[in-house]
Design a protein around this nucleic acid. Structure first.
Lengths: 340, 340
DNA sequence: CTTGGCACTCCGCACCGTTGAGTGCCAAAC
DNA sequence: GTTTGGCACTCAACGGTGCGGAGTGCCAAG
């Protein structure tokens, strides 16, 4: 009974603080939420909550704000994920509707997520490593230059321009094309790479040098993890709502957003789970981002998560709303990728 | 003689203000620049410059700062574009070296430009409309689904998944592929689109429905101006150096950077000229960006400018340096595109 | 366990004089 | 005619001071 009220108080503090961005005192609390008890009682509860490290006072004669631990508790125990309203659902699927390009899908997802959550959104490109080869195309640019194009199931396209040691003939080219595709098409990237390597023996000796460079370039493209590191950011303008000190809060975030490596680390383990993950303040790996939280999740086909997406915002954020939005967008994007 | 000194004073004011971000007074001015006259003389000159609207005082007992008109004068008449140092040149070409992808090139250019100028950098993707068709590829996904891939000279790749009304055969596919490529390959996008349309008659009647949908999809992809609107932004963290009021200066810029349409308007006419264009403060189309300037230029092959790139920063910026960097990067990127 | 009362703390704000950089103007010097 | 030193004036920035009020902790009574 008493314990229940304490949690209600914690919830009320979190909600109020998130809404007003100001430390919340006992009086305002009983006014805004029908707690049915007096401010004095609430004060006692607050003292207990502070004892447990769930809330804190910025200074003696101020109201309380939740600590990271308090938010954690709130997220883990006091939150049920809001479902999206039908209108929101329509908005989401409508927003993704017109995209025919992978770039398009990613770009739209970022905007969508940023708009829904009013935070900074991050979307990682689907990992090359976990997708399958759709097609390999070879285009002759000149007698000794070749463009190799690798088209992957998610819609990603990798290209390489290759210098060929001998002159190309149409026959050689179509033979090569055929061999490459029958070996690799439909395979997952890793298998495709080994399959291509294994082909080396079967080739007529006069073509083998050409073959070698082409395969090498393709394998290189397949194992190019740079492309896994591709990440898109949006909604930076939402940082304006922080209201916080620019130097202390916004600058580090902007800097982090510039560094894709950092972003990937922020999205972190989310890549490999379809659960929504929340990382609050100091729980993250960067001290400079001690006042920011990350809400992220993996997305991809039903079999497999391909990449992660999420949002970055102040620890003082609307967790239920953000989590719901992140989950919803991930689902819709996954569905969209599935059908394409 | 006297006129000359007045201009020297203007130049000194601009340079000092850019360096210190603080209004500059007559005394500091004679100390830092060897003007060979007394502060009182400088004060007279300043009064004259203020009369002409080239400088202004934020308040009565403060130093002077250049007006937009003052910067304009400085840029037009007092600036000679610094050449890049050999070290910088090496850095630039080295930075672009490893890029094999168009995405890569664009991405690297943005970072490069942001780093060189310490400002926010913007790079527009090469316009589809002004490039030529390199190759068209058709990949059968299933009996009635087809992936059409359009590869363009700049390295851009457009894809469309197409539902086919009748079952596909290998023969039909390779016939189609051959016809499409011989009609379109090497042509500029606009010509290619019409050439494809004109082919309609030549096709065997049983294939004509397939032909129609494929051509329609390709023409649609070619005339898709969304892709011309693609723009990449980098160096947002450099906004931190503004030191200016967040709400008044940084927020509007962040908002503008979110809107690609706005960005394209900012780059503006630069697309069609290889000259470096400077737009100072209120000269731009957005009132909210009255305290920011844009330095931009077109880039592309030697025959043709394909797109624009540039930087956005406070009106109080290092114009000679920024202009030199923008010009240099544009040149190197152009060269890089040329050879690929 | 809850509540009203009360003394206490301390932030935020407004007010205020001081300081100093910078100006404009003028009369003398070049 | 230009340049210069001198001088009075202006005004933002800064540090100190003094409330007012929100919020607390504690205690004794319900």
């Amino acid at each position: 009974m008493v314990e229940d009220r304490k949690l209600a108080v914690l919830r009320a503090i979190v909600e109020d603080y998130v809404a007003t961005q100001e430390p919340v005192g006992s009086k305002t609390l009983v006014e805004r939420h029908r707690l049915g008890v007096s401010p004095a009682t609430v004060r006692n509860d607050m003292a207990a909550l502070e004892e447990e490290g769930l809330i804190a006072q910025p200074h003696t004669s101020a109201g309380r704000i939740p600590t990271d631990k308090g938010y954690r508790f709130f997220v883990d125990r006091l939150t049920t994920l809001k479902a999206m309203s039908p209108a929101e659902k329509r908005a989401i699927s409508g927003f993704l509707e017109g995209a025919h390009d992978l770039d398009d899908v990613v770009q739209r997802s970022v905007r969508l997520l940023a708009q829904l959550t009013q935070q900074v959104a991050i979307v990682q490109y689907p990992s090359l490593a976990r997708s399958t080869v759709r097609h390999i195309e070879l285009v002759a640019l000149s007698a000794t230059r070749l463009l190799a194009v690798l088209i992957v199931s998610t819609g990603r396209v990798e290209q390489r321009v290759i210098e060929i040691p001998v002159e190309l003939t149409d026959d050689l080219l179509s033979d090569l094309r055929h061999r490459l595709n029958s070996a690799a098409a439909g395979e997952r990237i890793a298998e495709a790479a080994t399959a291509l390597g294994a082909l080396a023996d079967v080739v007529a000796p006069e073509a083998s040098s050409t073959y070698t460079v082409v395969v090498a370039a393709l394998v290189e493209a397949m194992s190019d993890h740079r492309s896994d590191e591709r990440v898109v950011v949006g909604g930076t303008a939402n940082l304006a709502r922080f209201g916080d000190s620019f130097e202390l809060t916004i600058k580090p975030v902007l800097e982090a957003l510039e560094e894709h490596v950092v972003l990937l680390k922020l999205l972190g383990d989310a890549t490999s789970t379809s659960q929504v993950t929340v990382r609050i303040g100091h729980e993250g790996p960067y001290d400079q981002l001690a006042t920011t939280s990350v809400v992220s999740t993996g997305y991809g086909t039903s079999d497999d998560t391909l990449a992660a997406l999420g949002i970055v915002g102040p620890t003082r954020m609307d967790y239920p709303g953000s989590m719901a939005a992140v989950r919803a967008v991930a689902r819709y994007v996954s569905a969209h990728l599935e059908e394409a």
